[in-house]
Design a binder for these strands. Structure first.
Lengths: 206, 206
DNA sequence: TTATATAATGAGAGTTTATGTCATTTAACT
DNA sequence: AGTTAAATGACATAAACTCTCATTATATAA
């Protein structure tokens, strides 16, 4: 089964201690049971208490791992990966091409299992307003990150309006693709992103 | 003081009955007190109970007017206005120009009082994650509306990816401008929108 | 290895948002 | 004026958090 947040422990901190390993395991376990219950009962009909019971922890412990019920679904670790991929892009690419490649390259590294998890998450998130709101909120964070690294790349200040418009556009396209993908889960997400960015490069002509 | 949602009653329904007038008045009154309390105490530190008491209604009644605490801030009635303004745009304009004009024309009709309220709301919303999430969620609805009327205008189906990408871009630009405006409240919001769309028309080149 | 320090957990009490029910009040319509 | 329908308030209940404190488990150092 898929890990989501546990990776933040596995990759981030020194992986040596028993304590860290246990935490990563617990976190992944809670997410697994939460996703299963959401699938079976629906998001709103599932209580934190139920999740805690299924994962064999106390509700207190649940909230130590995830500060909200939403967090158990939405927290992910994609930003650092995106940033890294972006900074790997050759400098002769246009900013748009660089972002596009960075996003797609991240997806190409995913296992079928990870892709399937991503799909299920996207479906759930887009179906539940609270989750959608929280995810959209995360996208703003991504947008700010993108503004900063993009500012470095093109040699402008991070409060440049063109730059920020650019970041807004990237996020906006992401939102529309996430929504589209939720309605058409049989399509290939990374291909959709690719197509959407093509439209952009063509100058957004209708 | 400014009305926000009350307009939906004043403008939308027949304005004749005492009942309607009272509801509009109550709604505006609740919002006024809520905004004041949020300003004085902060959003999270203000309870619905306090708002209800200030507005001299029961908590039950609060939730009849606003289904969540967030709603008291975020609910607005801009969509119908935007749609109407959009449909008023001459058909020889490009889609991008039409959207741009529609958005700006809406703002130009606002009184100074309304603009000031909009600014305060934007500041509050962008500062409070829950509100930001809920607002972003509303933007998705706007995006879907935009997709539909745009589909009519250019004669495509609403599930056309180019169309949806376009709508995503418009929403993304809005998000980035809202954020920018929250950081720079002394600027002119409608001018910021105008500038951001200019960058778009220039082909998003950095 | 044992002793001590530090971190994770669980139990339980309290707050706030939100939902649903029911009786009472208030406006609308004839 | 009397009937109908809508709005309100009082109350009960649930679920998501928050906080505190005692207990358990892991880490560290003598």
């Amino acid at each position: 089964m898929i890990l989501l947040n546990s990776q933040q422990y596995i990759k981030g901190k020194r992986n040596t201690g028993l304590r860290e390993r246990k935490k990563a395991k617990t976190m992944a376990n809670v997410q697994m049971h939460a996703m299963r219950l959401f699938r079976e009962l629906g998001y709103n009909a599932t209580t934190v208490e139920q999740i805690a019971e299924a994962a064999e922890i106390s509700p207190s412990t649940f909230f130590r791992y995830f500060s909200t019920k939403e967090d158990v679904v939405i927290t992910d670790n994609y930003d650092p990966l995106l940033i890294a991929a972006f900074e790997d892009q050759p400098s002769d690419l246009s900013p748009l091409q660089a972002v596009r490649n960075a996003m797609i390259s991240g997806m190409d590294d995913m296992s079928p299992d990870e892709l399937e998890t991503m799909r299920e998450r996207n479906q759930l998130i887009m179906a539940v307003p609270e989750l959608r709101g929280a995810t959209l909120n995360n996208l703003i964070q991504t947008m700010q990150l993108l503004t900063e690294i993009m500012a470095k790349r093109v040699g402008r200040k991070p409060d440049d309006l063109a730059l920020r418009t650019f970041a807004g556009v990237v996020v906006g396209v992401n939102i529309s693709v996430m929504l589209y993908y939720a309605e058409n889960p049989d399509k290939d997400f990374s291909k959709l992103i690719d197509e959407a960015f093509s439209k952009l490069e063509d100058g957004l002509l209708l």
